[in-house]
Nucleic acid binder design. Structure first.
Lengths: 233, 233
DNA sequence: TCTAAAACATGATTTAAAGCATAATTTGGA
DNA sequence: TCCAAATTATGCTTTAAATCATGTTTTAGA
């Protein structure tokens, strides 16, 4: 942990910047109940069924949130980037986690103690209302996702995932390479298809000149065409 | 409207009972900004893209919430029963509706003015936290739904829908007939399949002795078998 | 550096579900 | 009451996607 040189103070300020209308006393309370830890690429941060111990925040790295599906097939529900919260749904619903979180790169994870946070929310209605708004917005995404994952065809689903990854992580300096490097399996689990079909469809996009592939590096050559494929289903 | 004899006072009390920790001043504020209206079976209560004017509550009847899908195929997202809120996601996210609401039977709909409600929430953190919990719980349902709708096979999806309808509306006095009468098309749109397949699969369940069908009347003869079909996918 | 395992790639086959056609039944207005 | 439209029902065909098979490449650990 310590040997990875986590800048706790910096992480703390980053996390606090996500809260609106945080009073100085509340901030101090959080500081005293704030822990950070390091996760190596591939490590599990929490598992489906675990009980949330607090509000989890990713301050460095990338994390996937996934649910184990019917035939052992995973479904990636969310991709997290810094600085952002994860696992808050279970915390606020007062339930155990219904999905697992795994580091896709070396990551820094901070936790605000559950009890302390809920005490603050009970006193700060404006802050709670902001969080309510975020969760409501995410529920909207989730509902949209349900429809597209069930109704779009394979090409549309994969195209949508690629656009989603670009929106989430952006491009590298070349302005074309998506700034995340997923396995074909993860790409498939994000798009509700088998790994074979993810590979096949990526190859097709490459042959059509929409993408350029180099291992896990995905360069978007024709954004408009990709968007058209996504929209048509 | 009036000729349908809406008991506004009774509706008002019912709606207020859904709020936790509501102060008497707040209750009075709601009363003065509370309207009720009657919707005949089949009437649209709000449409995708409309702007929420307030918090909508169903105090009598049944309502389906659905999104228009890719090929004009609808996806039913939620089934509402009295007394319960609908359309609150858009309100709290400060967005337009992303789904439409339609009365499945003659229904009474009450609305609490948007501004008044938000003012109350800004002052009442405990109430806001309760709502946050509800929305977080629903986000969990939505995430589960995404996985089952995408990964279960047709029989599993339909069986799950029937169990969901039983959980939502319960049984008639005979303890077997599901207390909601949907068209095959609605049943299909709830279960992410074509109408043909809903009809076919219902017939199959009937032949297997799991259900007894009489028009839109669905009698569950073998709950355990139905649950087994749902669980196996 | 070598080797085993994992990931990637591509083609062939199977299958679940959609689509299409036709007909019977029910429903809701004129 | 009658008729047109909508809904329900069933069989057949097509198709999108999963599954299976095989081979290649890459990666990570001994």
């Amino acid at each position: 942990m310590a040997q990875h040189n986590i800048d706790v103070q910096n992480s703390f300020e980053g996390v606090c910047s996500l809260f609106h209308n945080l009073q100085s006393g509340e901030k101090e309370l959080i500081r005293r109940n704030f822990t950070c830890s390091f996760y190596r690429k591939g490590e599990i941060i929490y598992k489906e069924g675990d009980k949330p111990s607090g509000l989890v925040c990713l301050t460095k790295g990338k994390v996937k949130i996934f649910k184990e599906g019917v035939g052992g097939r995973d479904q990636i529900m969310r991709m997290a980037k810094p600085i952002g919260f994860i696992g808050y749904r279970a915390l606020f619903a007062d339930e155990n986690y219904i999905a697992s979180a795994q580091a896709l790169e070396d990551s820094v994870i901070c936790v605000i103690d559950r009890t302390v946070l809920l005490e603050i929310l009970k006193m700060n209605a404006e802050l709670t209302l902001h969080i309510l708004r975020s969760v409501a917005t995410e529920l909207g995404f989730s509902n949209n996702r349900t429809v597209t994952l069930t109704q779009k065809h394979i090409r549309g689903r994969l195209a949508e995932s690629l656009i989603f990854l670009r929106d989430t992580y952006g491009f590298e300096d070349d302005g074309q390479t998506i700034k995340v490097y997923l396995s074909r399996e993860d790409l498939a689990n994000l798009s509700n298809m088998t790994t074979s079909n993810a590979i096949r469809t990526l190859s097709a996009f490459s042959e059509e000149g929409v993408l350029e592939l180099d291992g896990r590096r995905i360069k978007v050559l024709d954004v408009h065409k990709l968007e058209r494929i996504s929209d048509l289903g």
